[in-house]
Design a protein around this nucleic acid. Structure first.
Length: 164
DNA sequence: GACGTGATTGTTCTT
DNA sequence: AAGAACAATCACGTC
């Protein structure tokens, strides 16, 4: 039932193009763009990141949860990956089927297991979302850096309320 | 009362 | 090339 017909192998030659290979190519483009801005950002953030990483060394057991993230609230955070989007959807369904299970640990475990069993096509849609998000993230990052260069001194202390 | 922990995989960056 | 780090979520534990 893998139905690994040619459809799976080379179906996207026409439109979607979500195969890992093509994804890699696309990644390259993003990487190039990020390389430029990241370089500059790296110089600025290197110090802060270094400290954070050093402190995060404890990641042996707990890798997430670093308190220093609030240093730059304007800095775009890494967008969730395809798996996370799937997790979000999976979590809802999982809760419905297993209302007793509330801990995310169980859900995450079950989700991970299912994720591996999922077919590429099924994951493709999630990958697509993740890619779009990353593109947006890249743009946001560029703008963020630009703003940083333009006016490092935040002139607006208060958060800019994008109130309509 | 508040924060951190834990678990999952994916993407990105760093060295 | 390979590893390290971090992304979201949410109940529970600890202080």
């Amino acid at each position: 039932m893998v139905k690994k017909t040619k459809d799976s192998q080379e179906p996207l030659s026409s439109s979607s193009t979500k195969t890992p290979e093509e994804a890699s190519t696309r990644r390259m483009v993003l990487r190039v763009r990020q390389s430029e801005p990241t370089k500059r950002l790296a110089s600025l953030v290197i110090d802060e990141e270094k400290e954070k990483r050093v402190v995060s060394v404890k990641r042996s057991k707990t890798k997430q949860k670093k308190k220093g993230a609030k240093v730059d609230p304007k800095m775009p955070k890494k967008p969730p990956t395809a798996f996370f989007y799937f997790l979000e959807d999976f979590r809802k369904e999982f809760q419905e089927q297993n209302p007793d299970i509330k801990t995310m640990r169980v859900v995450g475990k079950a989700c991970g297991e299912k994720w591996k069993t999922m077919s590429y096509e099924e994951k493709v849609k999630y990958y697509d979302i993740a890619m779009a998000k990353r593109a947006e993230f890249d743009e946001a990052m560029s703008e963020y850096i630009k703003r940083k260069e333009s006016g490092e001194g935040d002139e607006t202390e208060d958060d800019e309320d994008y109130d309509i």
